[in-house]
């Protein structure tokens, strides 16, 4: 009987198996393919190709650009929304919050298609591919910006703002010197949740630009699919991984700095 007893540690086993099978093993495969040629020999040729071949690098920069612009617009639209929602006291609040969150309940491909129809209706579709892609991205990722911002803003003790006002700050100064700095952690997690996915979500760019805008995610798909070069695909995937890692490092560093100040208060 004793030998059959489970300890708490054993609960990790299912996830451990999953992790090895579906994360560690594929990752090793990607690394293997990135550093080998088609015939299986070790090579750095794939990386040299990526950085010398103009299209790949161009696509990478465009992806970063689209990601940055999407994040910026999400922040510019999402912050005021989250701020106003956090200030509403009445029962209307939950309904309003629901209105902003509800789009997340609908399949995002369906949402993208609907938005595309609207853009066609107003005559934008087919004319401005990059603009349409960004509109689509902002539309799809806005709730991911609002939610973390809202959950941080709602937690800020009202007495900080009152104290600032009491010490002579008008509402604009109160916002700039107290509310905004105290919501940094929400801004950071909002950025993380919008920037990284918007760089790689090619379904949206495909839908809104009719396949004319190629972002980095699309490139990977092409090499693994019709392009039939797993080595090139793996290199791009690995570079994406590095970018994500670096972004996470930067945002983590930022949020740690703000967190130490927020702690215990």
């Amino acid at each position: 009987m004793k030998g059959l007893r489970f300890s708490r540690k054993d609960l990790c086993i299912p996830y451990g198996v999953f992790l090895v099978l579906f994360v560690v093993f594929p990752l090793l495969l990607v690394v293997y393919y990135a550093f080998t040629s088609k015939t299986g020999q070790f090579t750095l040729e794939n990386f040299i190709w990526f950085f010398t071949d103009g299209t790949s690098l161009k696509n990478l920069f465009y992806s970063i650009g689209i990601g940055l612009i999407t994040t910026l617009f999400c922040l510019l639209i999402g912050y005021p929304v989250a701020f106003i929602l956090s200030k509403i006291k009445s029962a209307k609040k939950s309904i309003l919050l629901l209105l902003f969150i509800m789009p997340m309940w609908i399949n995002f491909v369906l949402r993208a298609m609907a938005m595309k129809e609207i853009l066609t209706l107003v005559g934008l579709f087919g004319k401005y591919n990059y603009l349409n892609t960004i509109i689509g991205m902002v539309y799809d990722y806005l709730p991911f910006m609002i939610l973390p911002l809202y959950s941080v803003l709602i937690k800020i003790d009202k007495s900080y703002e009152e104290a600032a006002c009491d010490l002579g700050a008008n509402s604009i100064k109160v916002f700039l010197s107290v509310t905004l700095p105290l919501s940094t952690s929400g801004i950071i997690s909002g950025i993380t949740m919008v920037f990284l996915p918007s760089m790689s979500c090619y379904v949206i760019s495909d839908t809104f630009s009719n396949g004319k805008v190629t972002i980095i995610g699309k490139l990977i798909e092409t090499w693994f699919g019709p392009g039939d070069n797993w080595n090139f695909g793996s290199v791009i995937a690995l570079i994406m991984l590095v970018i994500m890692f670096v972004t996470t490092l930067i945002t983590d560093g930022l949020s740690k700095r703000t967190k130490t100040r927020e702690e215990e208060l």
């Binding site: 003790d157 007495s159 900080y160 009152e162 104290a163 600032a164 006002c165 009491d166 010490l167 002579g168 700050a169 008008n170 107290v178 700095p181 105290l182 703000t258 100040r261 927020e262 702690e263 208060l265």
Partner: peptide, 17 residues
């Protein structure tokens, strides 16, 4: 902010940042 009055709050409300 226009009153010549200042408050010491119950839980201090010192700006954590």
């Amino acid at each position: 902010y226009k009153r010549p009055v200042n408050t010491v709050f119950q839980r201090y409300a010192l700006f954590p940042h």
